[in-house]
Nucleic acid binder design. Structure first.
Lengths: 142, 142
DNA sequence: TCAAATTAAATTGTATACAATCTAATTTCT
DNA sequence: AGAAATTAGATTGTATACAATTTAATTTGA
């Protein structure tokens, strides 16, 4: 044990988080490719599917993303016809993102994606629950 | 509970992993800014600091990154004078990345980064150990 | 009231990520 | 030996991420 051990990858929590996240996102790809969606587009759609209408600020808070990231993602989803973007009439600064019929139809095609990806995360059920709890504890504290 | 609940953010393990990873990486920024390093550059340097010399393939396996990502990162680190990149004499396909004196000097300046960032991950010690175990279990299975 | 401060998105610039492809070097196999 | 297959990096193209700045709209406060 020398003083440089703190600089080793194995001794960190951030690196496995980063690596795990990337590897699992990669597992989504084949299933999302079929739907012509990227993971970020899929994340954004999940929120719009649930709320039917949401503004960019709310979406950013849910997804931990800012408008610099979301603007092109949402323009892309609009170009594909899954959402429409309209300024709020009561506050022109606010952009509302609403699901379209085509976007609603996509929801049914996406239903089996979670289950298919879940197969590659081989944790016991109680381990998944614990991981979920720990991640949300970290997120809640920052 | 309807059939669309599987498409909610809260019901997934991947999204909190993705969000947690990004939020913690963000916490590195102020400390890495001082060293003129990005998180990815810092990750790469950690491996080079530990092994002194490593080729791109080995580095990619350690970091779960491919040459498409690593090539520009390593060129950047070379431009800053922290590493040098030289082709192996026994196999011209292989590119060796070696720490320089300047890179070695940077190691000491980076020593307190982990501790400073650790403060924002407010987990009990045994929770951090468990999180570490779960993440490596997932990584080991994929 | 109306200038100053704040806010929501968009834009700009830099740095990843990664799939797909390409190139050059090395191995394998007949 | 020499063609075919494999391998290591680099390149190309697309899509994030995010800090910093900008723009336009709204709210605050003297």
């Amino acid at each position: 044990m020398d003083k440089y051990d703190v600089l080793k990858l194995e001794n960190k929590i951030c690196f496995p988080l980063y690596a795990c996240s990337k590897e699992i996102v990669k597992r989504y790809r084949p299933y999302l490719d079929v739907l012509d969606l990227t993971y970020t587009q899929y994340l954004a759609l999940m929120v719009v599917w649930e709320k039917r209408e949401v503004n960019v600020k709310e979406l950013g808070e849910k997804l931990y993303l800012d408008s610099g990231t979301l603007t092109p993602v949402l323009k892309n989803l609009e170009a594909k016809g899954y959402v429409c973007r309209t300024r709020s009439t009561t506050d022109e600064r606010v952009l509302n993102v609403k699901i379209t019929d085509k976007g609603e139809a996509l929801k049914d095609k996406a239903l089996d994606v979670p289950q298919k990806v879940a197969g590659c995360v081989k944790l016991a059920p109680q381990e998944a629950v614990e991981l979920y709890r720990l991640l949300h504890k970290i997120l809640g504290n920052m």
